[in-house]
Design a protein around this nucleic acid. Sequence first.
DNA 1: TTCATATATCGACGTCTATCGATTTAGTAA
DNA 2: TTACTAAATCGATAGACGTCGATATATGAA
Lengths: 119, 119
Amino acid sequence: MGCMTSLQILEPEVDVSCCAPSGKPALSAKEAQQRALVFKALADPNRLRLLSIVKAGQSGEACVCDLTEPLDLGQPTVSHHLKILVDAGLLNREKRGTWAYYSLVPGALDEAAGLLATL
Amino acid sequence: MGCMTSLQILEPEVDVSCCAPSGKPALSAKEAQQRALVFKALADPNRLRLLSIVKAGQSGEACVCDLTEPLDLGQPTVSHHLKILVDAGLLNREKRGTWAYYSLVPGALDEAAGLLATL
DNA sequence: TTCATATATCGACGTCTATCGATTTAGTAA
DNA sequence: TTACTAAATCGATAGACGTCGATATATGAA
């Protein structure tokens, strides 16, 4: 026994229509890759802290200069992490004058959480 | 203006008692590191597919030999990914005979989703 | 214009990680 | 015992990633 249960994977050319308890087939390679991008962005402690600090701030936003000190990282490094979070769709960037203000994209974290619920 | 809002970070010796809209201070470095471990485990497309396949299986479990083919990866590589998922607390491993059966840890994915909601 | 500041980008370095083939460990059956 | 199989572990390698210092870009002030 074992090793003979054929599990269905969703690929463009494969037709699936059965045998899943949740009714949904497993993730395709493409879908998994896209979701992994979001979790990659979340997979660094300093980026989690950046999100947390932005969220905890009473104004709902923070500029780079507010973030380098609490993280004890250089300004280029913080900028780099912020870019990754923006690219992942988790943070918004708004430039006002010399400063760049970062804020949470509304609902983005909930959406990320939803990616886990719908695995 | 800008650059003068002092954001509170939770560190063991720092006493915090004010100024957060959600009432919670930002993540400490230690907390962020722990949470990042979970997201690191989720930050690989093949591991997401492993979780998905295990979840989609009607038996709720799968052995390594069921997983190598759909992922198109070698057996050692799949074993390696499964270990990471087990270490992250997302999968259970139960050995029966020659086979090792992996199943979702109940509630683990919801807990991971909760880590995002409580950032 | 020149100067100062805030941020982004570049280049390099060291570390981590995903993958593989080869080997080892464990269980089952003869 | 031997033989076979499933899975884990080992060792190596290529690529990705986090961090830094140096530099570039951009905005505002003098």
